[in-house]
Structures are given as structure tokens and as C-alpha cells.
Simulated assay, not measured.
Amino acid sequence: MKERNDIGSFDAILDEKYGKIGTPKRDEFHREACAYCVGQMISDARKQEKMTQSELAEKVGTNKTYISRIEKGVIEPGVGLFFRIIDALGLKVEIVKPVM
């Protein structure tokens, strides 16, 4: 097998583009990435339930535009709304202490 020299560390790429872990720019990137991932999980679960954004919004007491912005990762819902969304989609949140 031929050795590949073009494979590098993803952390090194992030360090170069956004700064080291703990820097404001890297922290902001991390927050945005998490918001995007959560939005995609909500979008996928909503579609799996064959529910429109409007239907989800009505169930949780908000509007379609707000659900759309959450799904795109533009905004993060507050904790109360997040749990209402999770419940409306038939999901559950499990909070566990990491094993070290």
C-alpha cells in the first residue's frame, strides 16, 4: 500500500482557520457547529415524523419562521422550547456524566 502524505490532523486545520481551542474565534465556531448539528437533528426527526415546520411550530407554541431558523442553525432555542420540540417529535434527552 502506498503511504499518503496528504492526510493531516483535522484539529490542525481548525487551529489554522479558527485559532486554538479556547480562543474566542474557535469557541464561536464550536457554538455555530453545535447549533447547526442540533438544527439538523430536529429537521431530520421532524421529516421522519412527516411533520411540517408549521405543524411543529403550532405544537410547541411558536411560528414556522422560528422553527426554520432553528433547523438552519441560525438561532438556538431556549431550554424550555428545546424540550417542547423534543417532546413533540417523540424524542428524549438523556443527560449522563461522561466516563473518564
Rank of each mutant, 00 (worst) to 15 (best):
Q40N: 14
I85Y: 04
Y66C: 01
R84V: 01
F29V: 00
K92V: 02
V38Y: 10
E94W: 06
T65P: 01
R31V: 07
G61S: 02
T62L: 00
H30F: 10
T23P: 08
K2Y: 02
L91R: 14
K59E: 12
P98R: 15
A35N: 14
T65I: 10
A12R: 14
L89K: 05
K72V: 04
R69E: 08
P24K: 14
N5Q: 03
R4A: 07
G73E: 01
V79A: 13
D44N: 11
D6G: 03
Y36S: 10
A45E: 09
S9D: 14
T52P: 00
K97T: 06
P24Y: 12
M100R: 15
I85N: 03
M41C: 12
D27K: 15
D11V: 09
V93F: 05
E55C: 02
C34L: 15
Q53G: 13
I7L: 09
K72C: 06
V99A: 09
K2C: 00
K47C: 04
I75E: 08
I67H: 05
H30W: 09
K59Q: 10
V38I: 13
Q48E: 12
I86A: 11
S43G: 00
R46V: 10
G19C: 08
F10R: 09
I86N: 09
K17H: 03
G80N: 09
M41E: 13
T62S: 10
D44W: 02
R69S: 07
K59D: 02
V79P: 01
Y66I: 00
F29D: 02
M100N: 11
